[in-house]
Design a protein around this nucleic acid. Structure first.
Length: 568
RNA sequence: UGUCUCAUGGUGUAAUGGUAGCACUACAGUUUUUGGUACUGUCUGUCUAGGUUCGAAUCCUGGUGAGACAACCA
């Protein structure tokens, strides 16, 4: 149970394995009873929903146990990193509802790390290798066969010291020298086969500028940074499991007291039909398959936000999936459930017609307008109501009329009655067709005493449909988003080109939609339920002249299932 | 012929030697001025073979299957 959720329930729910570890450590009095975590993104891309899982854990554990959580940018590789990403990462964390206690950069520790590297050389634990990357790689051996020692492995401490200082002084070219830890080239864990600690990069760093010519690598920097910050629980994903012994080894070289940080791994988030790899997301953006990092089909936090997902719904989702060491794949429907669950409670109900067809109330006077009350949200009594117009000339959804319909069809069909929401029961009387035989008009007659609140308002009808008036409704563009991939998991189709797996129907744009007049006052990203259709929000690209709505998620579509059954 | 890790319904996750539970999904029903919501019900599970024990999803051993590791990435 994360502290981001309702505290009353915290006693009922069982603890996941990381919470148990933390509580045990607390019970045993480790690290003086302190809890300190960190969220360590590399500023080389946008945060996505997988990061949300890590963020909720790192910040959640700290909050839950009265500890602290730092934001630390893991900026040890100036090749890939950019200031642009730093800002978006901070913004997205705060949008999700979290605030860091301290803001650090791994580059803050470059000086300390450099000094300690020198210390390790002096202790005979590190050496400078002058071989090429290819040669070093070939000497590493394979997972099933041991590696061989570098010819430079046993040079003197003085020589190593001299070379390392000259590496930093800029005397050597990139790739010509590296600093390696001297451990064991035959170790069964490949990460112990003399791992690289420093490489030469003659690049300007986004924070340290041109101060450094050598930059530390992950394995040397991460545990050390945790140690410098007093992190007690260093939470990361499962692929770092094999690194943990090395993490501990480096910390052992550094530590001078009882305190030590502890790395714990949990399972990475996978969701069906979602592209979660940074490389593939970048490819989608670069090749223009999506409109950008914040395209509503993207799993990025900014994409989900634009799509209409709320921070609460994402936190609720993360809470439901839990933390284990099992590499599974979450069904997309669980994510969709959490946003439906929340939007059902908060989204005002409005009428919208995506594919309009004229419905004329033939016995209603031309030119007459009445304004009826429409409840904003039946789930929330405090949400109030607004007025909707009713006239002779209405627009309804094209699929809400069938000239010949099966018995289970509860909408407009000649001879049948339906209720027009908030107004009257009408009897459908027929339709008109154009020269090509397409239905152009639908006709009905209203029954005056069936108006909401009147004597016959309780008249039993099986269907209720929504409508807008031809005179008052506003034109709008509606974007329907679907799953981006056509298969649940692209890794199951490894032999296929990733781009071939994209769902061609992932975006449909409807340009003839009509919406209630009240929507002209909406703010960007405001949530609505278009009744009987789905949840939508107003896109930030909207203008007063052109309203643009994004569909967050569709309603549960029982009618679609009935229709499927009838056609079989 | 390596090291590390994992295996509970369709999916995810509980049960820490004592009634295999929860959520999503699917299906059925009740309510409903949204074919939405809410409520009720149904289906479906401990990878396998041994062992320890009064009792095993849980502990032990062997098998099987899956994932991570051979970047001067993190």
């Amino acid at each position: 149970m994360l502290s981001t959720n309702i505290p009353e329930e915290s006693g009922k729910k069982s603890l996941h394995f990381i919470e148990q570890i933390v509580e045990n450590d607390l019970k045993e009095g480790k690290n003086g009873g302190k809890i300190a975590t960190r969220f360590p993104p590399e500023p080389n891309g946008y945060l996505h929903i997988g990061h949300a899982k890590a963020i909720c854990l790192d910040f959640g554990i700290a909050k839950q146990y009265g500890g602290t959580c730092n934001l630390r940018f893991d900026d040890t590789n100036p090749v890939k990193e950019d200031v642009e990403y730093v800002d978006s990462i901070m913004e997205d964390i705060q949008w999700l509802g979290f605030q860091w206690d301290n803001l650090y950069y791994a580059s803050d520790y470059f000086g300390k790390l450099y000094d300690f590297a020198i210390e390790m050389i002096k202790r005979g634990l590190a050496y400078v290798d002058e071989q090429s990357a290819e040669v070093i790689a070939s000497q590493k051996g394979t997972p099933t066969s041991p590696g061989t020692n570098s010819p430079f492995r046993d040079r003197s401490i003085e020589e190593n010291l001299d070379l390392f200082l000259r590496m930093q002084a800029g005397e050597f070219e990139e790739g010509s020298h590296v600093l390696r830890a001297k451990i064991d080239m035959a170790h069964p864990n490949m990460h112990f086969r003399d791992p690289l600690m420093y490489r030469i990069l003659k690049l300007s760093h986004h924070r340290t500028g041109d101060t450094w010519n050598v930059y530390p690598l992950y394995d040397y920097a991460h545990g050390q940074s945790d140690y410098f910050e007093g992190i007690t629980h260093s939470l990361c994903t499962l692929e770092f499991e094999v690194h943990r012994p090395l993490y501990d080894w480096f910390v052992d070289q550094l530590k001078t007291d009882e305190y030590r940080p502890r790395q714990i791994e949990f399972n990475r988030l996978n969701i069906t039909y979602m592209v979660m790899s940074k490389r593939k997301m970048l490819q989608l953006v670069k090749e223009g398959k999506v409109s950008g990092w914040d395209d509503p089909r993207m799993p990025t936090l900014c994409g989900l936000r634009r799509r209409g997902y709320t921070p609460e719904s994402i936190r609720s989702f993360v809470d439901k999936i839990g933390y284990t060491k099992f590499d599974g794949i979450i069904d997309l429907s669980l994510l969709e459930f959490t946003i439906r669950e929340q939007l059902n409670k908060i989204a005002p109900r409005v009428a919208a017609v995506l594919d309009p067809i004229k419905l004329t109330v033939t016995n209603y006077p031309e030119g007459q307008v009445e304004w009826n009350e429409a409840i904003n949200n039946p789930e929330d009594e405090t949400a109030g109501s607004h007025s909707v117009p009713f006239t002779r000339n209405l627009l309804v959804e094209r699929e809400d009329f069938m000239e010949e319909a099966p018995s289970k069809y509860f909408r407009l069909c000649p001879g049948r009655e339906v209720r027009l929401k908030n107004a009257y029961v009408v009897t459908c009387t027929g339709c008109a067709k154009d020269a090509d035989g397409n239905i152009s008009d639908v006709f009905c007659e209203y029954i005056p005493e069936t108006k909401s609140g009147q004597s016959a308002a309780d008249r039993k009808v099986k269907g209720t449909i929504q409508y807008v008036t031809a005179e008052h409704s506003l034109p709008a563009e509606v974007r329907l988003y679907d799953r981006l991939l056509s298969v649940p998991n692209p890794s199951e189709e490894k032999d296929k080109d990733f781009m071939e797996l994209l769902n061609p129907d992932s975006l449909k744009v409807l340009t003839n939609a009509r919406v209630e007049p009240i929507l002209k006052d909406a703010e960007p990203l405001d949530h609505f339920q278009f009744q009987r259709i789905g949840y939508f929000n107003l896109d930030p690209d909207s203008t007063p002249e052109k309203l643009v709505f994004n569909r967050t998620v569709s309603l549960k579509d029982t009618w679609g299932k009935i229709a499927d059954k009838m056609t079989k």
